[in-house]
């Protein structure tokens, strides 16, 4: 039963499926993000405490969610590649890392912009922002480790292992940062994000969330294609493809 799996994961097949999937993801992302933005920024009522400033949540929360989702994708893809020696996994992991790091940066930037009207400062050591920052460091570690190796195959494997170690560590970091925050802040600082939301605010948020996920899927497919081409540039099928 493994043969179909390996066939599915063969570079030419993965290259073609990624090409086939990308436009669908992109279309779905466009629809949901346009709806989410219009509904969220124009029609949803302003927050009774935060006014219109809260509307940045429509970008911030999906970015934060995607930063974790991309890290998990990267770690799982790397783990599959490492354990079952499926090369496409490394391509997926390598493609996901910079996208995830960008989402993390976006979450940090929007969080700090949101912090300006809320806390009166661009940066507060809010637990969510702090663990987001540590996540960014984890991304940096994985990306730099991959690039540090002269032999790309070894860089891939080393980065995959570090991704796995990191994904075990992420919940621990998250938990310890919240614990640390509860120790020092005592709940005086208003936290970003909120558990209770009116449905009129929630729907656009959900749409943005799924829109971002589809956008991630689309960008991932495109980047994976590039990674596969680069990795397989010596192989017959790529030479044939580019007409060399």
């Amino acid at each position: 039963m493994w043969t179909w799996f390996y066939k599915l994961a063969s570079p030419p097949h993965a290259y073609r499926s990624a090409a086939a999937m990308a436009p669908w993801f992109l279309a779905a992302a466009a629809v949901m993000i346009v709806y989410g933005l219009v509904d969220g920024l124009v029609f949803a009522p302003p927050d009774y405490q935060q006014g219109d400033a809260f509307r940045i949540v429509y970008v911030h929360a999906p970015s934060a969610w995607l930063s974790l989702f991309a890290y998990t994708t990267m770690a799982v893809a790397g783990g599959i590649a490492l354990i079952w020696r499926i090369k496409v996994g490394y391509a997926v992991a390598a493609a996901a890392a910079p996208i995830g790091a960008s989402f993390t940066l976006a979450a940090l930037a929007t969080g700090s912009l949101w912090g300006r009207p809320m806390w009166g400062t661009y940066w507060a050591w809010d637990p969510r922002l702090t663990s987001e920052l540590i996540l960014l460091f984890l991304y940096f570690g994985v990306i730099s480790l991959r690039q540090a190796f002269e032999d790309p195959a070894r860089g891939d494997r080393a980065a995959a292992l570090l991704g796995l170690v990191g994904v075990v560590n992420v919940p621990i970091v998250h938990f310890s940062v919240y614990w640390w925050n509860s120790l020092h802040q005592g709940g005086t600082v208003m936290r970003l994000g909120k558990p209770h939301m009116a449905p009129s605010m929630l729907w656009p948020l959900l749409a943005m969330l799924f829109g971002f996920m589809c956008f991630f899927g689309a960008v991932l497919c495109m980047r994976v294609r590039g990674e596969i081409l680069d990795r397989e540039r010596q192989s017959a099928w790529v030479r044939e493809l580019v007409g060399a």
Partner: peptide, 27 residues
Amino acid sequence: GLTVGLRRGSVLLSLIVLPLAMPLLIF
């Protein structure tokens, strides 16, 4: 182990290990 063969391994080692070690620092 991950950085052993690398020329600029020492900075990278800190970059890799310090984020993992933050819970230790906190507790």
